[in-house]
Design a protein around this nucleic acid. Structure first.
Lengths: 186, 186
DNA sequence: CTCCTCATGTAAACAATGTCAACATCCGCC
DNA sequence: GGCGGATGTTGACATTGTTTACATGAGGAG
């Protein structure tokens, strides 16, 4: 029996439940709205229980961001494998769509808060993600480095500007079309 | 006499003093480190005093971000006026250098927190800044819209990636040179 | 000049939050 | 069968943003 009707003293698999509930709250309420007490209540556990699995709220956030980077990497590899002809364009589109589809998670991944205090796990996950990205893009970061960085900057900037609502859609304009158009324009 | 030895009951010009001290603390400690009580203490005033000039901490942050956008606009117009030949490149470089020179202020300007709750003042200041930017870039947003947005995205993304330390400098590499190189690569 | 008003500042309190220490419960291994 | 450590609970503490009631004094009305 996993979760019996009367709440058992031991949750069985907290940590995972915390992370899942945290992800939902994060996307719905934003990083600020994700309080440890609310989270604990949502999972049906006391306020101090999360501390058995995460050293602090920042550690919880870090774990969340790490899963975000893993998911991000997976999406990137998948789309690159699916479009062997022109992986760059496909990856750029996926990059932006990932940001739009996981807005608050994406913001958390690049949160200055988290990297302010050490957080080596986050740094590692980010490095892994971008290393695979670099690897897929093509081997020579020597010669085409500036071009690769420019492409990355453009895609990342587009993601954030769209996320912040800074780039407004025109009447009857399609988001994906706009993304493709901007990415396409060198 | 500006600040007399015995602190007068009325500060004279709080609000301005608050904003200036807040800007210093912001750049030194980050947005999280900017607490209302610390700020009040830094200015030599009680913890509740700021509420006579700002409805909430968010309002204080908003005012700070607004000044940031004004300063940003001024820098942009100045550099555009100074380089009539090729304003685009000069503005791009200034854009990135502004972000690097006012890291936490720049982050605050694009903080999702602030725009989450109305904050029409911030929205207005941002629109004004980007309108002048659009105006300088060139009239036809109709035809060259995608190109303009792509340039904006590239510059903005480069700013954030550099800010977050995501783009690492190589040994003996100059920041400005890297910026110019990336901006130059279409 | 005097007085009175209102903007500005203070003090004390409240609710909420992250966090910790002391205690309770129970899973799994000898 | 019993014991130990992992896991969860309770209660408390410090800190923060914020509000309410009160204090101060600058500056105009008479």
């Amino acid at each position: 029996m996993s979760t019996s009707a009367n709440s058992p003293y031991h949750h069985g698999n907290l940590r995972q439940a915390l992370l899942e509930a945290a992800l939902i709250i994060l996307e719905k309420e934003g990083e600020t709205g994700l309080g440890l007490r609310d989270l604990a209540r949502a999972v049906g556990v006391s306020a101090a229980a999360p501390y058995r699995h995460f050293d602090s709220r920042a550690a919880l956030l870090e774990a969340l961001a790490v899963t975000g980077f893993q998911r991000f990497s997976a999406a990137m590899e998948a789309v690159a494998a699916g479009n062997p002809a022109d992986p760059m364009a496909a990856m750029g589109k996926t990059y932006v769509l990932f940001a739009l589809g996981n807005a608050n998670l994406f913001r958390l991944m690049f949160s200055p808060q988290l990297k302010k205090d050490g957080r080596p796990g986050l740094r590692m996950a980010a490095d892994v993600a971008f290393d695979t990205l670099r690897h897929v893009v093509g081997g020579d970061m020597q010669t085409g480095r500036a071009r690769a960085l420019a492409a990355w900057a453009k895609v990342h900037g587009l993601s954030i500007l769209l996320l912040d609502g800074q780039i407004a859609l025109r009447a009857g304009e399609d988001t994906e079309a706009l993304i493709a158009e901007i990415i396409g324009s060198l």
